[in-house]
């Protein structure tokens, strides 16, 4: 039983990281109506940005996380301005395809740039705090604990920001209707930029928090990105709250799932496939997601 409690706690920590990823992806999707296929590489960049800030600039680890988020916010803003922006003009005819191709192109670019610049081998930043919390039979490293707490703080801050600040409400207004938002004086294009920057920063925060727990490698973003896709589809493509709950649930289920497979070889392959299967079935049954509002597609 203790074994499963431990798995559940570790799953919860990973789930919070997934939730950060998924919240950023959802923010981008709900405001821009774009699925960011480059989200995993932004997470990777965040991890490395934090690593280099800590090891080369000598900043303390928490400041490394903040710096990574700021850097990736700036990166997201620039990418949105330079590459995604033409989507909102009449120059781009196939908008869905355009967004998939350029964000997927971003993945190809950054993943390989990561391999060239950071090297294919994994790197580990120093821990936030060495040691572990021991509560009876449960052992949880301080790094996991800190990552979990930081993720909760970031998610709470995001929720507060979206609900209570005028910028957050402007983002929400644009996500509900571009036209109505424009009517009440909100510039949707500025909100697209803000949303993409924030989404990138959240991915970076997730990557920077996970870095001391798992090592950094250029392809570290692939699995969490797939998980984030699953979560936003389950969560209804556009509900930030749904994506947070979905992320935590998926992390816990995944964490516990490892405990149940007897054959390790197939188990490994099929645990990965499990998430993909979940995605496939959700899209088939409810293209708008399990928690999404049912909206009739009018012709």
């Amino acid at each position: 039983m203790d074994y499963f409690a431990l798995l559940a706690i570790n799953g919860l920590v990973i789930g919070l990281i997934y939730a950060l990823m998924a919240a950023g992806l959802t923010l981008i999707f709900s405001v821009l109506k774009v699925v960011n296929f480059g989200h995993g590489t932004l997470y990777m960049l965040g991890g490395y940005a934090s690593y280099y800030a800590i090891t080369y600039l000598g900043v303390p680890p928490p400041a490394g996380v903040v710096l990574a988020m700021v850097a990736l916010f700036a990166f997201g803003v620039v990418f949105e301005r330079l590459v995604l922006h033409p989507m909102y003009t009449n120059k781009v005819e196939r908008k869905d395809e355009y967004a998939i191709i350029v964000t997927f192109g971003l993945t190809v670019l950054l993943l390989n740039l990561g391999i060239v610049v950071f090297g294919p081998f994994s790197k580990s930043p120093p821990p936030f705090l060495a040691g572990a919390l021991i509560a009876g039979p449960l052992i949880i490293t301080y790094d996991r604990l800190i990552a979990a707490i930081a993720a909760i703080v970031l998610l709470s801050a995001l929720s507060w920001f979206l609900a209570r600040t005028s910028l957050g409400q402007a983002l929400d207004a644009v996500s509900q209707s571009r036209e109505s938002a424009a009517v009440i004086g909100i510039n949707p294009r500025r909100m697209y930029t803000v949303a993409f920057g924030l989404g990138s920063a959240l991915a970076a925060g997730a990557g920077a928090l996970i870095a001391p727990i798992f090592a950094l490698s250029p392809n570290m973003g692939e699995l969490p990105a797939v998980q984030a896709f699953i979560i936003i589809v389950l969560g209804g493509m556009g509900s930030v709250g749904g994506s947070i709950v979905g992320g935590i649930l998926l992390g816990v289920v995944e964490g516990l799932g490892v405990g149940f497979f007897p054959d390790p070889n197939r188990a490994l392959a099929y645990t990965e496939a499990f998430g993909a299967l979940l995605l496939v079935f959700t899209l088939l049954v409810r293209p708008t997601g399990l928690f999404g509002r049912p909206h009739a597609r009018l012709e």
Partner: peptide, 29 residues
């Protein structure tokens, strides 16, 4: 299967399907 799916939904669906197929090729040694 994908008759009702468009744009990013279709892309995600086929991405996941492709990944499942690859993992089956790996697993069914």
């Amino acid at each position: 299967l994908v008759l009702r799916l468009t744009g990013p939904y279709l892309a995600l669906f086929t991405l996941a399907l492709s990944e499942i197929f690859r993992l089956m090729l790996v697993a069914e040694q």
